[in-house]
Amino acid sequence: MNKLIILISILFLSFGAKENSITNSKIEGQTENSSLNSALSLNKNILYKGTLNGNTKISLYLKEQEHPCGGSMTMLNAMYKYNNHNKWLLLSITTDIEKKKYCMVEDNFTGVLFLEKDGDYLKGNWVSPDTKQKYKIELKKAELNKIEIEKLDEILFDDLLYNKNDC
């Protein structure tokens, strides 16, 4: 009889261990998925389209991604172009994300964009380096598909940033 009780106890204990193992693997899988989802949510690709000075059509591409140092920091890269030209201009960004304000300086300091985010809109001004010219900017978030994101990322990273930082 004692042997039967011991055998039953061992079976119940091993069943409980398997149950805990399954539960732990589910929790680990959920943790990995939530970590992956939070990392993916940090990678934002946003295209804005609108006008400069009310009539010149422009596009601005903003890429936010996880900072290599980790934590809650992110990196912002951006470029914009006049829609009647093929050349994109690299922008260096300083921001106060909490206040939704951006200062974007054109590469080689040919102009500065001061923008404020309001929902799906970016509004502000483009200012010349000598501050004598100032034009109103109004941009609205546009839809992007995966192919467009890949193409814009290639221009931003492979062309603009690589060429700027290449020795």
Results as ranks from 00 to 15, higher is better:
F12L: 15
A17T: 08
Y102T: 07
L113N: 03
L47I: 06
A142Y: 00
N45H: 12
C69R: 05
Y102H: 11
K146C: 06
G16C: 13
V112M: 07
N53W: 00
E28V: 06
M79N: 03
E154G: 05
S128Y: 07
N55E: 13
F114P: 01
E64W: 00
I147G: 05
I10A: 11
I10G: 05
N145Q: 04
I8Y: 12
S59M: 03
M1N: 12
K3G: 13
L7M: 11
E150L: 13
D130K: 08
I155W: 01
S9L: 13
A17E: 10
N53L: 01
K44W: 06
L60G: 09
K44S: 13
K141I: 06
G111H: 03
N125G: 04
S35A: 15
F114T: 05
D130F: 04
E19M: 13
Y162K: 09
E143M: 14
N165Y: 06
S34E: 05
H67P: 08
N53M: 01
F109L: 11
L7G: 09
F114W: 08
T23M: 12
L11F: 01
D96S: 11
L122Q: 02
N24Q: 08
K140C: 03
K136M: 15
A78M: 00
N24P: 00
M79P: 02
K57Y: 00
Y135H: 07
G54A: 15
K140A: 04
A142K: 00
N20A: 15
S25I: 10
E64S: 10
S34T: 06
D159N: 09
L40I: 09
N163V: 01
C103D: 03
C103A: 06
E98M: 13
L113G: 05
N55Q: 12
S128M: 08
G54H: 12
L4G: 13
V127H: 13
C167S: 15
G119W: 01
V112Q: 03
Y135D: 13
K49I: 09
G70C: 09
L4I: 14
K87Q: 04
K99Y: 12
L115R: 03
K44I: 09
T31Q: 14
G71P: 02
M104P: 01
G111F: 02
Q133P: 04
L42Q: 11
T51C: 12
L122N: 02
F12S: 14
I147P: 01
Y48S: 14
L91E: 03
L113E: 02
I149T: 09
E106A: 04
F109V: 10
F114Q: 08
N125A: 12
T94P: 02
H67R: 04
S14V: 07
K63H: 14
N55K: 11
Y82R: 00
